[in-house]
C-alpha cells in the first residue's frame, strides 16, 4: 500500500513575490492573473490537487 500525503500544499502560484517567504512547496511566479489561473489549473490537473485562492495574489494547490 502506498502512502499518500493529504491536506498539504503541493505548490504556490503567485503574481506577488513579496507574499511568499520561503516555502516547502515549489513557488511559481506568474506575470499576470491569466497566467496564474492557467498555471494553477495545470498543476492542479497534474497532481489531482485543488486550487484555492488566498486573495492576496497567491493561489495554492492542495491535496485533499
Amino acid at each position: 500500500m502506498g502512502t499518500e500525503f493529504k491536506e498539504c500544499i503541493l505548490a504556490v502560484v503567485t503574481t506577488n513575490r513579496d507574499k511568499v517567504l520561503g516555502s516547502a512547496a515549489p513557488v511559481f511566479f506568474a506575470e499576470n492573473d491569466e497566467e496564474r489561473e492557467r498555471v494553477s489549473l495545470l498543476i492542479g490537473k497534474a497532481t489531482k490537487g485543488m486550487v484555492h485562492d488566498l486573495e492576496n495574489g497567491c493561489y495554492i494547490i492542495v491535496k485533499h
Binding site: 489561473e37 492542479g44 485543488m50 493561489y59
Partner: peptide
C-alpha cells in the same frame, strides 16, 4: 470571493474561476 457558500454557509474555497 473564492468562497463558495450555500445559504450563507461556507462550503469550500474554489480558486479556479
Amino acid at each position: 470571493g473564492p468562497l463558495m457558500k450555500v445559504d450563507g454557509v461556507v462550503i469550500m474555497n474554489v480558486g479556479n474561476a
